[in-house]
Each structure stands twice: as structure tokens, then as C-alpha cells.
Design a protein around this nucleic acid. Sequence first.
DNA 1: CCCTGATTCGC
DNA 2: GCGAATCAGG
Length: 191
Amino acid sequence: MSWTDERVETLKKMWGEGQSASQIAKELGGVTRNAVIGKVHRLGLSNRTTTSTAKSDAKPKTAKAEPKAKAAPKADAAPKAVMPIAEPTTPPPPPSRARRAIIPAGQPLPPQPSANEISPEALAKVSEVEKKSKKIGLMELTERTCKWPVGDPATEDFWFCGLPVKAGKPYCEAHVGVAFQPMSARRDRRR
DNA sequence: CCCTGATTCGC
DNA sequence: GCGAATCAGG
């Protein structure tokens, strides 16, 4: 496969949307995530503030025998005024509601943690995922199983999602979606 | 172990 | 220009 205009455009679009390289690669097909990343770099639209591997130190196998004199470390302590973009997530509502089990088993309490008004799409996705969930018990939770609780802790109708977590996060992709709101779709909660 | 992006370098 | 191999981090 080659990088046709269309493909490049899809790449740009998805990358812009914050899609991961692997997702993009999967979408495009015929390419690996490496190819995608490589292309992204060549296109110049790389840094998206992610795995800030701002290391200028990459040592490939074949050590380049270039005793390059290291540039003197900049003494300019640029006062990085990083600030704004740091409020993207809203980790409010997840799960674990240690509610007193005084609730009539199987009655009125579907109030899923965040079933308020998260993005409908996200919720829909969650519902979908719940069907596929492994329905694992507390004991089966591991470092990489989604720890999103499903059902009512007060009943037998309770389990954990158990799907593979999304790199680093405690939940699977779908649940990360509802746990970490992008910050929009959240305004307007005035009662 | 899973995933992520970043970089290098032979092609 | 391309992307596998590799690196580095979560």
C-alpha cells in the first residue's frame, strides 16, 4: 500500500482526533502502526503532547561513531508557563459506589455511576461493552483488566468489566471514555 | 504483558 | 519516502 492522498488525509484526520497510531493503521489497513507513525513524522505533524519522549537520545543498534560534542545545556530556564490545556479530563464519577446495601435487591437502582448525562454515545458504548464484558469477580482483577464495576454490588448481579485495559488506564477503552470526559459535553449541568 | 509514540537507518 | 526494528514510557 502506498500513501495516497486519501490515505494521508485519513491519517491526518484521525491523528488530529487523537486516534492512536495503531488505530489509524488498523483503519487504513495494509500498514503497521510504525508506518503510520513514520508517516506522521514525515508529515511534520508529530508532537501531540503524548508520551513526551522528548529525549533527543535514541541509540539504535549501530552506534553511530560520532563523538558529537554535546551542545552545552541551555542555561536559559525558559519559564514554561504550561497551564491551559491541562483540564481535559473530568474524573468524577467512576464507579465504586460503596452504597449501603439497603437497597431492595433488583429494584430501582440502575443509576449507573455516571448515567447522568455523559455523552450518550459513550454510554451506549458502555452498554455494548457490558455485554461483552468478562464479568469477572473481584479476585480476577489484574493489572490489565478493566476495573469498571457493572451491576449492583448489593446483588449477585455484580461483576467487573474485565476487558483489557487501555494502556495505563484502569479501565478498558469504552469505560475510559465515560470515566474521563473530554471536558466538553459536560458543561451545562446547571439544574 | 499490554499499549503508546519516537527515532534511526537500510532500503 | 518508506517502514521495520528498536527504544522509551505508562
